[in-house]
């Protein structure tokens, strides 16, 4: 028997955690007419959130290479929600390339995904002039999108304010407020979610005016595939490692070498780029790496967690799933019992 919410007012809702999940929950519910209080323990917004480390690609089909199909299917819905909501979204597609000796990686990627268009060297040069002559083949996922993570988080926060919600940074979750609680604390909820684990990810931000990209580019590699996401202003996010460790200690030399030398292989202009920021975050994940919505034993808390690598991709889907549940009782497939 699936758990249900019990005797809890849903007119007034506290959303705990202002990462990508919490912001989307607060926004969708506030716009749906609920009275929302969004709280986060950090004084300074987003500093403790895994979301600030995100590549912020909305790439449901590319992600299907290493994720269950449900992530792809929900992700396609996520893309629709972002398109309908966020004016800063850039829908320029994703490019996937591989070095000549790693062409089997490109074929594998193509086989594992849908909606790819194969591009030859000329078509690649037309899309990204700075990559001209560097790769003989590419996969192009024209419908996919990206954004700057920091700008998107700030926009969402402002949109939550504008929707009439109360927002408190530097606020504690204790004592528990009255009414429904939506727990979006990510790794902060680890003690309440025994199956949650942390997966370390490292990324670098560099700046160079010597090259331009109009869209995220993924460079496949048998050991360390990378993505490079243009952020505007000549900035690029280079990410990301996936390591089964739960510490957010500073980036290791090995990871920095892997990421930077692969970026350099994508384009030599990265050799002269300035390093703006580098570091590590910890992604919250369930054993199947699929996020879920859980109704806690107290009957008045919903836990939305387990973003893994797909927080930006899936946050709007989970937010709408919760809003629909509160409105009609319909349980989206993301609702799970444990």
């Amino acid at each position: 028997m699936s758990r249900k919410l019990r005797n809890v007012a849903t007119s007034s809702i506290t959303v705990v955690g202002a990462g990508i999940f919490g912001l989307w929950q607060a926004l969708v519910l506030a716009r749906a007419g609920h009275r929302i209080h969004l709280i986060d323990k950090s004084e300074k917004p987003f500093t403790a959130s895994a979301s600030r480390w995100a590549g912020a690609m909305i790439a449901p089909d590319c992600e299907a290479e290493g994720a269950p199909t449900v992530v792809r299917d929900w992700g396609r819905e996520g893309l629709d929600h972002w398109r309908a909501t966020y004016p800063g979204l850039i829908v320029n597609g994703t490019l996937v390339v591989a070095a000549a000796r790693d062409q089997s990686e490109l074929t594998r990627f193509e086989n594992m995904t849908q909606r790819a268009e194969r591009k030859d060297a000329q078509a690649l040069a037309d899309l990204e002039p700075d990559l001209a002559g560097r790769f003989n083949a590419a996969l192009y996922y024209a419908h996919e999108a990206h954004m700057g993570a920091g700008a998107a988080l700030a926009w969402l926060r402002d949109a939550v304010y504008a929707a009439g919600a109360q927002v408190s940074f530097g606020a504690n979750f204790d004592p528990k407020p009255d009414g429904l609680i939506i727990d979006c604390r990510g790794m902060g909820a680890k003690d309440d979610l025994p199956k949650l684990r942390g997966v370390r990810g490292e990324r670098i931000i560099v700046a160079t005016n010597d090259m331009r990209l109009s869209r995220p580019v993924r460079l496949l590699h048998p050991r360390q595939p990378i993505y490079v996401v243009p952020q505007g202003d000549g900035r690029f996010v280079i990410g990301a490692t996936v390591i089964e460790r739960e510490d957010a200690e500073p980036m290791t030399v090995k990871s920095a070498l892997d990421l930077m030398s692969t970026a350099y292989a994508l384009h030599p202009a990265f050799a002269e780029a300035s390093i703006i920021d580098m570091g590590a975050g910890v992604r919250p994940a369930f054993p199947d790496n699929i996020p879920r919505i859980l109704i806690a034993q107290d009957g008045r808390t919903l836990r939305v967690n387990g973003a893994y690598r797909h927080g930006f991709l899936l946050a709007p889907v989970l937010a709408h799933a919760v809003a629909d549940y509160l409105k009609t009782g319909a349980r989206h497939a993301a609702f799970a019992d444990e």
Binding site: I243, E244, R245, E246, D247
Partner: peptide, 10 residues
């Protein structure tokens, strides 16, 4: 994957 006791416990 799990450098020491501090990490990767799960």
């Amino acid at each position: 994957e799990m450098a020491g006791e501090k990490t990767g416990a799960n």
